[in-house]
Design a protein around this nucleic acid. Sequence first.
DNA 1: GGCAATTTTGACCGAACGGACAAAGGTTAG
DNA 2: CTAACCTTTGTCCGTTCGGTCAAAATTGCC
Lengths: 211, 211
Amino acid sequence: MIIVDAVAPRTRIQIEKRELILEAALDVFSRFGFRGATIDRIAETAGMSKPNLLYYFRRKDDIYSALMHRLLDTWLQPLRELDDIGDPMTELRGYIRRKLEMSRDYPRESRLFANEILEGAPRIMPLIAGELKTLVDEKVLVIRGWMKAGKIARTDPHHLIFSIWATTQHYADFDVQVRAVLGPDKGAAGRYEDAARFLEQLFMDGLRPKD
Amino acid sequence: MIIVDAVAPRTRIQIEKRELILEAALDVFSRFGFRGATIDRIAETAGMSKPNLLYYFRRKDDIYSALMHRLLDTWLQPLRELDDIGDPMTELRGYIRRKLEMSRDYPRESRLFANEILEGAPRIMPLIAGELKTLVDEKVLVIRGWMKAGKIARTDPHHLIFSIWATTQHYADFDVQVRAVLGPDKGAAGRYEDAARFLEQLFMDGLRPKD
DNA sequence: GGCAATTTTGACCGAACGGACAAAGGTTAG
DNA sequence: CTAACCTTTGTCCGTTCGGTCAAAATTGCC
């Protein structure tokens, strides 16, 4: 992956401050979307003045791009770890678990990504059609191999991946709705445990080889 | 449900123009989100001037509210139709099919709703915690009844509903990503057929009673 | 046809926003 | 210590946006 930074960080302060800004930007962008987020608000969250922030990132878009590039990298990590060598059912169960843990531990990242896609991915379309598609294509071949070998049930690998994405990310992206529907009794921990149990059962039942 | 209209429509023109505006607003809001949408753009899409539009809806929020209220009503229709009387497996299969058809036929509504929830549902929280939760609670009881009767496998009804929502709405909300990953070969029709087949198999396998 | 009510429009306003800039204040290496 | 470079800030500008207003145009009713 190629990262183009408007200002290549050179000094200690630049490295620290850029990190501080990206952390603040993640907070603000994921809450308000690209248009709803203001430079002033990001600067305030990062504890600096607007002109100061603009010294590190010349444009609002630059902050957003830097954030999206970094985000997508960690975002695809669970899928990258889906390994051809291991036991298929174990591998897929592990993938679902890791993906759900990402929703639990990085909800801001999930919402930011969802927001971008929802708007038509105007800023990261190349990454989606490039890096992401390549990775999915690769893993689809792995899954298809497992199916041919009779290790898991035959089904559509693409839609299997979509379903795993959809169900796991739902708990981050629609968190407000999930909490409202479940009521106040369930804490976050219990919610995610129940979800993990349910999803594991759902997908394992769907993937167990039939004969 | 209570609908509060800032201006109660009285004349023929008011009824027609308000309809025209809401249609345009759905288009614009679902593409740009609440903050990204401008009154000017909605007015332009509706083929009228901004002050003219503001004659029918005094505030931007009023358009948005009117839209959300109407939307939620049709949005919950498939779940309302989940019937206690029918055969459980058939009922649930029908629900999944209807929900997927809604994603196919009303993607703008799906995206608008997703956007609102993603932002924390600031404008429709009462509806989510009220009307929606009530409906879900009711249907959860129905599903739980089916489980106790041994008609479907025992699992968590709440998370079952969440999974159906997540997987079906994914095809509307993440449409851009789905298209990019599947490549240009698949048309919309084929995509939705494949998805329907996959989801039906996944959930039917997961719900078939075990003994 | 004429009058009242409704609808449409152009012009305008204040606030918020993205961004520019120059000057002031710090930091660091020789 | 000092000169060169890096960092921070106050101020300002043009644009966009939500919303107002009064006047003009149109419609509906007797």
